[in-house]
């Protein structure tokens, strides 16, 4: 089936893009890589009347870092660029891991992390780590700019707090605290290039053997990426032992609310939350120690 008919615009500034989106109204979609949007348009899952291609807006295609503000990933930066960025690999390795684990090479050459977030699939690969690292997103519209904590961004499958005409312009990730280690774990039941049945992002802040702070987010096991609150609490102030990470995993599996679909059953997802949470804690701890 071919794509539904829509209009196409490629403005060169954020202001123009927002102005245009406001003017065109309902059915107008921003497009970065287009890999999710066009599939939805083809399957008529979205009613698309106009596409605003944001790839020509130069300021969106930047990765910056400073010791105060942390990491800023512009919303057209591709997953390939994230995966291979030396600074991200060094300071935010789990962000690079999640980008590298998304879809396949061609898609990563096209798609952006921002688009992955805006598409808001429960299984969005790039969400859990960003959530665990306390990321915010910058959103601009005709009425101005706002900063939204990522944990307030998702409202349901395919749903976010973005209003019609609002453009996500950047993902901001704070500088990891001293002693922090991060991890991205995922499992796809059937092959190595696959959509995740379960994914977990974690950040642990360690002081020696003791976990001072922990943030764990789970993907594909609830309508939106979710915090494993009880598991986090369990770790705080404790020495991370093999036993503790298993207990924390089990705790996380009690918190999640997976469904059965063609990719995995509810039971399997629940079990995997425990396994992957344990593995994420373990890797975070190891990375923190480095």
């Amino acid at each position: 089936m071919g794509l539904s008919r829509f209009d196409y615009y490629a403005p060169e500034t954020i202001g123009d893009a927002c102005e245009l989106a406001g003017k065109l109204g309902e059915g107008t979609m921003f497009m970065a890589g287009g890999t999710d949007l066009l599939i939805k348009a083809k399957r008529r899952l979205l009613n698309v009347s106009a596409v605003i291609d944001i790839k020509k807006i130069k300021e969106l295609n930047k990765i910056t870092f400073d010791e105060k503000e942390g990491l800023v990933i512009g919303s057209t930066v591709t997953l390939t660029e994230i995966e291979n960025h030396p600074l991200i690999k060094e300071k935010y390795p789990a962000i690079a891991d999640a980008a590298a684990a998304t879809a396949n090479v061609q898609i990563r050459n096209m798609a952006s992390a921002a688009g992955n977030l805006c598409n808001a699939a429960p299984s969005a690969e790039n969400a859990p780590v960003l959530l665990a690292m306390g990321a915010n997103v910058t959103v601009e519209g005709r009425d101005g700019k706002r900063i939204i904590p990522l944990d307030k961004f998702f409202t349901g499958p395919g749903q976010t707090v973005l209003k019609q005409g609002e453009l996500l312009t950047a993902i901001n990730v704070p500088v990891p605290p001293k002693g922090a280690g991060t991890s991205y774990q995922h499992i796809s039941a059937r092959g190595k290039v696959d959509i995740s049945s379960v994914c977990v992002g974690a950040m642990l802040v360690m002081k020696g053997d003791i976990c001072e702070d922990a943030r764990i987010f789970l993907g594909a096991v609830a309508p939106t990426p979710m915090m494993a609150k009880n598991a986090q609490e369990l770790l705080k102030g404790k020495k991370i032992t093999e036993e503790l990470l298993q207990t924390a995993g089990i705790e996380a599996s009690k918190e999640c609310k997976p469904i059965t679909d063609m990719r995995a059953s509810k039971e399997y997802r629940t079990l995997m939350v425990a396994v992957l949470t344990g593995r994420a804690i373990d890797e975070s701890r190891r990375r923190a120690a480095k």
Partner: peptide, 22 residues
Amino acid sequence: AMEKGKTLNTTFLDYKMPSALD
């Protein structure tokens, strides 16, 4: 993945043939 004669996995994303990594 079948549901009452309806095939649910109708893309190569969900009908999983092995890739070079497998």
